[in-house]
Simulated assay, not measured.
Amino acid sequence: MSIGATATSITGVIVFVMISRLLSPVEIGLVGFALIPVDIGKLITNAGPDKAIVQDLRPLHLPVST
């Protein structure tokens, strides 16, 4: 894990702790539930969908001059 990713994770924990002091338990649950799609989106983005694109492995049929 890079230093930037570690700093982002630590910042996220600190912000969540600060928000948890301001909100009720029900509201914290709603925030946590709302963050699920956000985290799934981060996982998909970090997984690199560009790497999952299937390439056409058939050889190109180029015209051959004889």
Rank of each mutant, 00 (worst) to 15 (best):
I53H: 01
G41Q: 06
I14S: 06
D56T: 01
L35T: 02
F33I: 13
I14F: 00
M1Q: 07
T66L: 10
V54C: 08
L35K: 07
I3G: 15
A47H: 10
K42Q: 12
V64E: 11
L22E: 11
I53Y: 05
L43P: 04
V31H: 01
P25G: 03
M1I: 11
P25M: 09
T45A: 13
A7G: 01
T11W: 06
S65H: 05
K42S: 13
V64Y: 03
L62W: 04
I14K: 04
T66N: 09
P63F: 01
P37A: 05
K51C: 07
G29S: 08
V17Q: 08
E27H: 11
K51I: 01
A47D: 08
A5L: 12
A34W: 11
G12V: 05
V38A: 14
V17P: 04
S2H: 05
S2L: 05
G29M: 08
P49L: 14
D56S: 01
G32A: 03
P63Y: 10
G32Y: 05
L30Y: 07
D50H: 08
P49I: 10
G48W: 14
L43C: 15
L35Q: 11
S24Q: 08
E27S: 15
V26L: 08
L23R: 08
L22N: 07
A34C: 11
S9T: 09
I36K: 00
G41W: 12
I10Y: 09
T11A: 09
I53D: 02
V54K: 14
A5H: 14
T11V: 12
R21K: 13
A7N: 06
G29R: 06
E27R: 13
S20W: 00
V54T: 15
G48D: 13
G48H: 07
K51Y: 11
I3S: 15
L23H: 05
N46M: 15
G48M: 09
V15P: 00
G4T: 15
L62K: 04
P59V: 00
L60S: 11
G12Y: 12
K51L: 14
V26W: 10
V26C: 13
Q55L: 03
P25S: 03
P49C: 02
I53P: 01
T45S: 15
S20Q: 05
L43M: 15
L60G: 06
A34D: 12
L57F: 00
L23W: 11
P49E: 02
A52Q: 03
L60Y: 02
V17Y: 12
V26D: 09
R21I: 11
